[in-house]
């Protein structure tokens, strides 16, 4: 199990933040996820070993936080907010539109080409600019179906080019 140089650097830096090393667990798991696409079994073992806690403890923590996943998502995880403020301004319709466009039905489903996954999420803090979604960490706000089409097309193109 090897972390990239960048991730190792992040780890070393974060270690200096806290009097107790396990404290870096939550944000670091998200960095692990960024590197591998999800928190892999190997990385759970690795981080548990480094922090001197049990892998079970790590899994207990992972399963608590909604952003952390132990299975792959699409390359671009489209997270559509349907919470109250987005709902009032068409959030559910936007989710429906994304699902229809990408041909997925159930929550967290990954498209067959692996480029997208679609997740219905709780409030992402874009209430005044609703409806909104995040693609990975990027915010897209004041959505309309047309705007969504354009955004998703751009991501698809980016994925194809890479």
């Amino acid at each position: 199990m090897k972390f990239s140089e960048q991730l190792e650097a992040r780890y070393s830096e974060m270690l200096t933040h806290y009097p107790v090393k396990r404290s870096l667990l939550v944000p670091f798991l998200l960095y692990i996820q960024d590197e591998f696409g999800y928190v892999t079994d190997d990385s759970i073992e690795e981080i548990a070993k480094r922090l001197e806690i049990s892998p079970l403890e790590v899994r207990n923590v992972i399963s608590y936080y909604s952003m952390l996943r132990t299975k792959p998502s699409g390359k671009y995880n489209v997270q559509v907010c349907t919470n109250i403020c987005c709902q009032l301004r068409g959030g559910e319709e936007m989710l429906g539109h994304v699902r229809e466009k990408l041909g997925v039905k159930v929550n967290k489903e990954v498209t067959s080409d692996g480029i997208f996954s679609v997740e219905e999420v709780e409030c992402i803090g874009a209430c005044s600019w609703a409806p909104a979604m995040q693609v990975n960490y990027d915010f897209h706000e004041n959505l309309t179906p047309e705007k969504i089409d354009q955004i998703l097309d751009e991501y698809r193109q980016k994925a194809v080019q890479e």
Partner: peptide
């Protein structure tokens, strides 16, 4: 032993 945990929420 710490063999049991609490998962999900």
């Amino acid at each position: 032993v710490w063999a049991l945990g609490i998962q999900n929420r």
